[in-house]
Simulated scan of single mutants.
Amino acid sequence: MTLLTHSLAITSVLLLLSTPTLSASTPSAPALAASPEVLVYLTSDETQTQGMALVLSAQMLQQHAKVQLLLCDDAADLALTHTQSEKLKPFDKSPAELLDGLIQQGVKE
């Protein structure tokens, strides 16, 4: 995967984060203050890319966004119980461990 592809993937996640969720009904103050909904689409098998997407997802959760993960292509292996990958600094966790933590916090896969 090229640097341009990495940048586009991260830009997509950031754009989704910055887009407010609007209600289908007439907009009102409570509807506009609703938590944003974010779909993180992850296809890469590269440890750094997976880690970045999962760390950004965790940060969005901390900001009360409703986060869903879509694991496709090579990234789908993260959902397997036998998946092993290197641990990432500074959290000292692998992408699979980061995913487990997100699932425990309520993220839908």
Rank of each mutant, 00 (worst) to 15 (best):
L15A: 15
A24G: 06
E46L: 10
A53H: 14
A29N: 02
Q59M: 13
H6Y: 14
S25M: 03
E46W: 04
S7L: 11
P30W: 05
S23G: 05
T47G: 00
Q62K: 14
T47C: 12
L88A: 01
S57V: 05
S35Y: 06
Q59C: 09
E46K: 10
V67K: 01
S94M: 06
L14S: 13
L78P: 00
A29P: 01
P20Q: 08
T49N: 08
G106Y: 10
G101R: 10
L102H: 07
D92S: 12
T26C: 00
H6A: 15
V38T: 09
L22W: 09
T19Y: 07
L88C: 08
G106Q: 03
L56D: 06
C72W: 06
P90R: 11
L61W: 02
M52Q: 11
V107H: 05
A33S: 12
T11Q: 13
S7V: 06
L8K: 11
Q62W: 05
A33T: 00
T2F: 00
S94I: 04
L56P: 01
Q48N: 10
L22I: 11
L32N: 03
Q62C: 06
E46H: 13
G101F: 01
D77A: 15
Q68S: 15
K108T: 15
D74I: 00
T21W: 11
L61H: 05
P90E: 06
G51Y: 10
Q68K: 15
P95D: 01
